[in-house]
């Protein structure tokens, strides 16, 4: 059979990248009998990617400064074409992601999938849940409207109620004793650089472990 240019290109790349091997190992894995609850991890991953993409788009216009944060978001909502859509997706998927990640954890708990050899997958999962909530917390302040301002005031005040270290934690979160430009800026940095970087790293290990151990079987009557 005469191979087309496309096939030639593919086999050239495959010889060097091992595309077929990667496909076999990553996607062509054996799976236990299908169950919709097992899709929630992938749903979390999808939402994370969606948030990353819409979030990057938002940073094209958003300005993390007390003078302009609110106005820049008004601008996105009223002037930028499809700005309402991009922000809307980011806004609603943020809540959805927390919910989906949480239900994913519940399913892992109820199917007892956290047991040997998947304890580490579970522990990393806890990190992922905390980071996801952290994304929600830091993102909530960014519009810098009344609700955001007071929610963060309250949230950081709660963190400040930790015995002994409380005041230090509160000042570290706010970048000083009060909510200020420093708070907004560091929440922004956490929201777009620090937490996503940690999320990507942990998701990578999480997925590696899933591929390594395979998916657990759904418990049946005998278990």
């Amino acid at each position: 059979m005469r191979s087309t240019l496309w096939q030639k290109l593919f086999s050239w790349l495959d010889e060097r990248l091992g595309l077929n091997d990667a496909y076999k190992n990553l996607l062509d894995r054996p799976e236990p009998k299908g169950n919709w609850w097992n899709t929630l991890g992938s749903a979390s991953l999808f939402l994370f990617i969606l948030q990353a993409v819409t979030g990057i788009f938002l940073t094209v216009y958003y300005t993390p400064s007390p003078d302009h944060a609110y106005d820049s978001i008004q601008y996105i909502m009223t002037e930028v074409q499809f700005g309402w859509l991009v922000r809307g997706i980011h806004h609603w998927s943020a809540s959805l992601m927390v919910i989906v990640v949480f239900i994913h954890m519940l399913r892992v708990f109820f199917t007892a999938s956290y047991k040997y050899p998947r304890e580490l997958t579970w522990l990393i999962g806890i990190g992922l849940l905390l980071l996801t909530v952290g994304m929600g917390f830091t993102g909530y302040l960014l519009p810098w409207h009344q609700m955001a301002y007071w929610a963060t005031t309250v949230g950081t005040q709660i963190a400040g109620s930790v015995p002994f270290a409380g005041e230090f934690i509160l000042k570290s979160l706010r970048g000083g004793p009060d909510l200020s430009a420093l708070t907004l800026q560091r929440f922004f940095a956490a929201h777009i650089w620090i937490l996503p970087a940690l999320l990507v790293a942990l998701i990578g290990v999480h997925l590696y472990l899933i591929i390594r151990h395979g998916e657990s079987h759904f418990p049946d009557k005998e278990d």
Binding site: F57, V60, E79, V80, Q81, F82, G83, V86
Partner: peptide, 12 residues
């Protein structure tokens, strides 16, 4: 289309 429109919006 929305992605591109969003990006170039100020230029239009």
């Amino acid at each position: 289309i929305p992605s591109i429109a969003y990006m170039i919006s100020p230029a239009l």
